[in-house]
Amino acid sequence: MITQLFDHRVVAKDESELDYRLRRAFERCFESLNGCHYAYFVMHKSLQVKPRIISNYPEPWLEAYKAADFHLIDPVINHGMKCIAPFSWREALESTEPGQGNDVFTLSEKYQISKGFTFNLHDSNGLFAALSICNTEHRVDFEQVMMNRTAEIQMTLIRFHNNLTASFTPSELFPESGDTSLSDKEMGILKWVVMGKAYSEVAAIHAISVRTVKFHMSNVVNKLQVSNAKQAVYKAVSLGIV
């Protein structure tokens, strides 16, 4: 019998009100995953801010993971950042250079978190999200079950993520980021610049002055934490922001 792990009445240690609300919303959305250990991970690809994690993994492991910023070396997150299709953690480890991130799995094994499957997405707001489901019970058919349910779980992940981004601004999800999300005007101008349009052409398209175009691009450069417009274009494209 599968143990019921989704208890909406329990507030985890040091869990903020927003984290609690998000966890409840997530578990309502993913009721079909009852009995599974999961971790929903979302981060801004272009901002140096800590990710937000919704999970029912053991609290000691979550605390250690966040405190040590393990997401920076986690093979699962690093692999997910580079691909679109769902994948097993075995695939992530196989694609990782020897010695890079192995410590994360060595430590996680103490909490029965070493085998699993991850679904991921990259949205138009520059966010990367990953839903990892852990094979805590060591089922031999786990990967096959995940593959059979890929469409269902991936679509549920998309719906939840869409609701999340529609309900909360980046500054609410990542309070330490401040006002660093690109505005609609900045995104519009950046997209034309990425397409190779000169500032004069972008100005004509938006019916604004070249000086105003330069002003918005200067803001884009600052928000993407780069040195010039050329680097901003490269970073925006490489991160999938445009």
Rank of each mutant, 00 (worst) to 15 (best):
P60T: 08
A130K: 10
T180P: 00
F105N: 08
G196E: 10
M146E: 06
N162D: 11
N102T: 10
L190Y: 07
D74Q: 03
T169G: 11
M147K: 12
K115S: 13
C29A: 13
R9I: 00
F128E: 01
S167N: 12
S55I: 02
W61I: 12
N222Y: 03
A12W: 11
E109Q: 12
E201F: 05
K235W: 04
D19K: 05
D74F: 03
Q231P: 06
E31P: 00
A203Q: 06
C83R: 15
F41N: 02
Y65I: 06
A67L: 14
N78P: 00
R9L: 06
R149V: 02
M146H: 05
D103Y: 03
M155F: 01
Q225W: 00
R28T: 07
L18Y: 08
P60R: 07
E152F: 11
R21S: 10
S114Y: 13
P51G: 04
S238T: 05
I113R: 15
Y65F: 11
F6R: 11
C134N: 04
F215M: 09
L22P: 03
C36T: 09
Q112C: 05
L190P: 09
N163T: 03
K50E: 14
A67Q: 12
V242N: 15
F128D: 03
E172K: 14
A25K: 07
S32L: 04
D14V: 01
E176V: 06
K66P: 00
S95L: 04
E97G: 08
E176R: 12
S218M: 05
G80W: 02
M146G: 08
T169A: 15
I153R: 14
